[in-house]
Amino acid sequence: MISTPAAHSDEELDWRESPALALSPILTAALDAFYEQGYHGTSVRDIAGRVGVTVPALYYHHQNKEAILFSLLDSSIDRLWRMCRAAQAESGDPAVRFANLIECVVRFMAKSDKIASLDAEIRSLSPELRQRYTARRDEIEVMLLDAVRGGVAAGVFDVALPKDTVRALFGMVQAIPTWYRADGRLTVDEIAHRYLDIAGHTVGAVPELLERWRSMGEKPA
């Protein structure tokens, strides 16, 4: 049995302040276990013990440990996909869409440290499930790629290799869960603005855009 996350319309999501995923007790326990011990270091018995159910009872809801992992990954990527759709829908201007998408993904990665860190475990999925996950992730990359290409066409970005640039940007942002901590010296707002500045330079944004984005992140005197 492969669980599918409940559908929510994009309009219901505040892409800057999206609430935490509503996970079942089994998925919550599995997420904690995978985060603490790694996927391969966690057994189904470990997860069942954390929830306080028997292994057969757990299997009633999820076919196996791989199905649990996929349910977590699928819930996460579906939420990010919907947030990105809401972020890009705010404006048809490619520079605004680019800024919104970068900020959206940065905020998601910073606020979803446990579940975002599971992305490295997609290698543990079967080819079929991996393809289902990566197909949705690729759709998010296409949103950003379209914004970059639109910015190039509008003369506000200067990018020789849009696809490679977008891939590099996603790699940079996906690393946030490896170091960001909520109790650290930087807030999510500060991280979002810093990464937007880095991303803007990466796509060769014109000085006017860079200055505008930088001023958005400045603290009031």
Rank of each mutant, 00 (worst) to 15 (best):
Asp189Tyr: 07
Pro177Tyr: 02
Ser71Arg: 07
Ala199Tyr: 05
Arg136Gly: 07
Pro177Asn: 04
Met216Gln: 14
Thr165Gln: 07
Trp179Arg: 12
Ala67Arg: 07
Arg85His: 07
Asp189Lys: 11
Tyr39Cys: 06
Leu118Trp: 03
Ala48Tyr: 00
Gly151His: 04
Ala175Gln: 06
Thr178Val: 03
Ile68Trp: 00
Glu103Val: 10
Glu11Asp: 08
Asp32His: 09
Ala29Ile: 01
Asp138Arg: 15
Asp146Tyr: 05
Glu121Val: 06
Asn64Arg: 09
Ser24Lys: 06
Asp158Met: 00
Pro25Lys: 07
Ser43Phe: 00
Val159Thr: 05
Ala48Thr: 02
Leu69Thr: 09
Gly41Asp: 05
Val152Trp: 01
Ala120Asn: 08
His193Lys: 13
Thr4Met: 11
Trp81Phe: 15
Gly41His: 05
Ile198His: 13
Phe70Asn: 10
Gly150His: 06
Ile140Asn: 13
Arg181Tyr: 01
Arg97Glu: 06
Gln131Glu: 12
Asp10Gly: 07
Gly171Ala: 01
Thr4Lys: 13
Gly49Met: 00
Phe108Gln: 11
Ser91Leu: 07
Leu72Gln: 02
Ala20Ile: 00
Val188His: 04
Lys163His: 11
Trp179His: 10
Gln174Asn: 14
Ala154Asp: 09
Met172Tyr: 06
Arg212Val: 06
Asp78Leu: 09
Leu129Asn: 15
Arg82Gly: 10
Ala110Lys: 08
Ser18Ile: 03
Thr187Tyr: 01
Leu69Val: 04
Leu145Gln: 13
Arg137Cys: 09
Cys104Leu: 03
Phe98Thr: 10
Asp113Glu: 10
Asp32Ile: 02
Leu21Asp: 06
Ile68Gly: 05
Gly204Gln: 01
Arg185Tyr: 06
Val55Leu: 04
His61Glu: 02
Thr202Val: 14
His40Ala: 14
Leu196His: 10
Ala22Asn: 08
Ala175Leu: 02
His201Val: 12
Trp179Ile: 05
Arg167Lys: 14
Cys84Trp: 00
Ile140Gln: 12
Phe98Arg: 14
Glu11Gly: 06
Pro162Ser: 09
Asp78Glu: 13
Arg85Phe: 01
Cys104Met: 03
Arg214Cys: 10
Gly151Gln: 02
Arg214Ala: 15
Ala29Leu: 02
